[in-house]
Design a protein around this nucleic acid. Structure first.
Length: 553
RNA sequence: UGCCCGAUAGUAUAAGGGUAGUACAACUGAUUUUGGUUCAGUAUGUCGUGGUUCGAAUCCAUGUCGGGCAACCA
């Protein structure tokens, strides 16, 4: 018997609907507006919608909610498709709300004929005024008294392009005194003489979200239309349209959107970061976009795991970004090839090691016996990390210090004998002796050391650029922090190391490989790499118990 | 001041009238040729007040707090 994971509230609804026979199978949809790139918050929605269909044997449509031509672009359509595919999901159909423009127009005419919609010539200011306030009912204007015939003619003329942008709208006739402001005769259609990314110049009137989304759901026989909390008030209107139009009764359910510490989750703000040059683009590895995370090296599986762990509920939340990083490490630990790279080199000479070189073997991944081994050249002169040596070490410092012994990973145990300084007193070289019988795999020295260091042979070192990323914002709750969100940008979110020294095995690996630079973190090759220049992105650091220990004192 | 949604460890999320559990984070220890991984363990929680009940996180009432609602955006 497998361990049963508890259901989230939407899964419960689905199971109930299936059990009672309300539906034989379910149909969901992921409905992005193509006006920006997808971010990790969308990933939650994608995993929910596609995950539900996968789990309960239904299907999921990808539907672009493209009813506002002035903000939407084909570039975004393509990026969204890439991201959904990369996340590991396949849509049953690729649809566009704009596919339904003709049908939607007919729906509008139907409402007019039923006396449930009218053409209003008021300005947007007038409409806003007449709306009232949450505590004061709105009022209907004289345009609401137009006859059905007149409305029909006017609406046809709107479509025909006889009127200027903003001069007329089509409104539903519902209830100007409703507690729900959205029911106070909401606008259904507006005039926009704008070029649409798919329908071109065929239309100059475009439906509003509320007159496109639910109807699109109905057309596609969506059984469970899942959206975020801010659409709760829209549900009344969603249901009103279904009732009056007598179309397939899709049901809307709302869940709380994902918020994550130290990041923003707004397409508008993300776009601002891109446009104002705070990042290099939508796929900058510091961005919370799916493409940014992909470039940074986050595996799709880790993102799916994350979405699974955060759960689905209706209360607002702020998820610790540490959980995402945990999921990334968990996955990468299993698959990453171990390599050695020195970021801040300090020369180390093994005085009793002969000239020449030998080739050592090291496991590609201790977690995976099938990952095999690689060859690492070893010689008399090596680079180690500068921070791995201290002349006057504190307590519990297991690394190199005068007279102290450490193991060089997959090689020998060495002892620090002396150090060399320049005129300014900076340490320029560490001189050690090695213990020949301590060779990894055939150690007969009987010596136990606490520390193990990574290293690279000077003669064989390959120069690489390494990009280290930190969080893009300095405050946990960016959206609710005081002032403009850009005031909280972390100016030190990117550190570029132009001359790191890497072991030569890194030259042979493929672009899709994931690495763990031993004791440093997880890395992947960046797309900026070329034949003569390796560029690595740090995906995430390793957990660092020493940093925590060192901070204590 | 109207209507709607919500409230369980630090953060998330279960328990659907019957022992408050899980994950991340934190802390302690063991293992380790990565101060990684793994393993073992510790601490921390039901918003308040009444009520129903043998028994309430759960049901009822009421209060408090947080969020949303008046775009020709989605």
């Amino acid at each position: 018997m497998s361990e049963e994971k508890s259901l989230n509230f939407i899964e419960e609804i689905v199971e109930e609907d299936l059990k009672t026979g309300k539906y034989k199978s379910i149909v969901t949809r992921f409905p992005p507006e193509p006006n920006g790139y997808l971010h990790i918050g969308h990933a939650k929605s994608i995993c929910l919608n596609f995950g539900l269909a996968k789990k309960y044997g239904g299907k999921t449509n990808l539907r672009f909610d493209d009813t506002n031509p002035t903000t939407e672009e084909t570039e975004y359509v393509e990026s969204i498709k890439d991201d959904v595919r990369w996340l590991g999901f396949e849509w049953a159909n690729e649809f566009y709300a704009s596919d339904y423009f003709e049908q939607l127009y007919v729906f509008a005419v139907t409402l007019i004929k039923k006396g449930l919609a009218y053409v209003d010539d008021s300005t947007s200011e007038e409409i806003a005024e007449q709306k009232g306030t949450p505590t004061v009912p709105g009022t209907r204007n004289r345009y609401a008294e137009r006859s059905i015939e007149e409305n029909l003619q006017l609406f046809a003329d709107m479509r025909a392009g006889k009127y200027a942008d903003g001069s007329k709208v089509l409104r539903a006739r519902i209830d100007m005194a409703s507690h729900n402001m959205l029911l106070r005769d909401p606008i259904l259609y507006r005039i926009k003489h704008a070029h649409h990314h798919r329908t071109g110049d065929n239309w100059c009137i475009y439906p509003m979200y509320d007159f496109a989304h639910g109807q699109s759901d109905a057309i596609e026989n969506i059984t469970h239309s899942i959206c975020t909390l801010e659409f709760i008030p829209h549900r009344d209107l969603y249901n009103w349209c279904i009732e009056k139009l007598e179309i397939f009764p899709s049901h809307q359910y709302e869940f709380a959107r994902l918020n994550m510490t130290y990041t923003i989750m707004s397409k508008r703000k993300l776009l601002q970061l891109v446009n104002e040059g705070h990042v290099t683009g939508w796929d900058d590895p510091r961005m919370s976009t799916i493409s940014g995370m992909r470039r940074r090296g986050y595996p799709a599986e880790a993102i799916r795991e994350f979405c699974d762990r955060i759960g689905v509920a209706k209360r607002e939340n702020l998820i610790d970004i540490g959980l995402l990083e945990f999921c990334v490490r968990e996955q990468l630990n299993r698959i990453a090839l171990r390599r050695m790279v020195v970021f801040d080199p300090l020369k180390l000479v093994i005085t009793n090691y002969p000239e020449g070189e030998e080739h050592l073997q090291s496991e590609n991944n201790p977690e995976d016996p099938n990952a095999g081994h690689r060859d690492i050249p070893f010689s008399r002169e090596l680079y180690i990390e500068r921070e791995d040596f201290m002349e006057n070490p504190p307590k519990k410092y297991f690394r190199l210090a005068p007279g102290q012994m450490v193991r060089l990973k997959s090689a020998y145990i060495i002892r620090c004998e002396e150090l060399v300084k320049d005129a300014a007193g900076n340490i320029t070289e560490v001189r050690c002796t090695y213990i020949p019988e301590s060779k990894s795999g055939s150690d007969t020295s009987g010596i136990n050391v606490k520390g193990t260091l990574h290293w690279v042979s000077v003669k064989h070192a390959v120069t690489a650029e390494v990009r280290l990323y930190d969080r893009l914002f300095k405050v946990e709750d960016v959206a609710n922090a005081e002032g403009d969100f850009k005031d909280h940008i972390n100016e030190d979110s990117l550190t570029v190391l132009a001359n790191a020294y890497a072991e030569p095995a890194l030259l042979n690996d493929t672009p899709d490989d994931r690495y763990q630079f031993i004791r440093k973190g997880y890395f992947c090759l960046d797309k900026d790499s070329s034949a003569d220049k390796l560029v690595f992105n740090r995906t995430v650091t390793l957990k660092d118990a020493w940093a925590k220990e060192a901070k204590k004192s």
